[in-house]
């Protein structure tokens, strides 16, 4: 899956250990510094940017595990939204 470059730019400020390194699709967001508090800030940013509302049942560790898992969730929500 290709990740939107805008999406990676959106992610970066929430990852306190990423510095200037590239964010790979499969690296652990938690290891890059996404804790539970930053995750909620990221959620608000994602919903604002992509005009989606993430249902509670998708707000799990696996959704926020990697850049690609989060992007896949966003993409599937955007498909559902007309």
């Amino acid at each position: 899956m290709t990740l939107d470059t805008g999406f990676l730019d959106l992610l970066r400020p929430f990852l306190k250990y990423v510095g200037d390194k590239p964010i790979s699709a499969d690296s652990s967001l938690h290891d890059l510094g996404l804790d539970s508090m930053r995750a909620i800030e990221l959620l608000f940013a994602v919903e604002e940017e992509y005009g989606v509302a993430m249902p509670d049942e998708l707000l799990t560790d696996s959704t926020f595990a990697t850049a690609s898992s989060l992007w896949a969730t966003i993409a599937s929500l955007r498909e559902r939204t007309p």
């Binding site: 508090m37 909620i40 707000l59």
Partner: peptide, 15 residues
């Protein structure tokens, strides 16, 4: 309390 505040925002239904 900060952690719980963030968790509360993840549970709109208040389960």
């Amino acid at each position: 309390l900060l952690v719980n505040g963030a968790l509360a925002l993840r549970d709109r239904e208040v389960r």
